[in-house]
Amino acid sequence: MRLRMKGMFGIIIIVAILLISSALYFKVIPRVEAQITTVFHEASNNVINVNTKVDNAGTIELNDIAVSILVTSGNQTYIDENFTQYKLSAGSEKEFKTFFYGDHYKIYMITITVAFTGDDSRYRKEFTYTAQDYMNIQYDETIKEWKL
């Protein structure tokens, strides 16, 4: 029974440690962290959506967010859109939507460029993907920096 109590206490201690750690990680330990999700989606009538979502998963507000979505195939450019001057507080997110009419059977090159300012630092990163074969493709990226 004592052994069982010890076991239960131990479990509680471990859970408490995990909870505290999680709380420290998500809410207390300062960091800049942006999770970038891009979805390539083929709908009917030749519609192709390319949406990019920026999720401020860090503890520091992100300012002056700029997102660029470029979609090409061969020599042809289908989307070349820029979204600027956005701001995200910690824990918030923003989805940037674009679409074009295209041949679902073509291979598309997707270039996502994300830039923002967090804790007086400027972050910029470019991601390149190749979309083919499937009607729905999701790409996940993270930009993160500790601010201890």
């Binding site: 999700t37 009538n45 030749n46 009419y101």
Partner: peptide, 18 residues
């Protein structure tokens, strides 16, 4: 008529149905 509306958090496959 094509429907280009799409929200990546919406999990319905009927999104974009014309």
């Amino acid at each position: 008529t094509a429907n280009p509306e799409f929200d990546m958090d919406n999990l319905s496959p009927l999104q974009g149905f014309p």
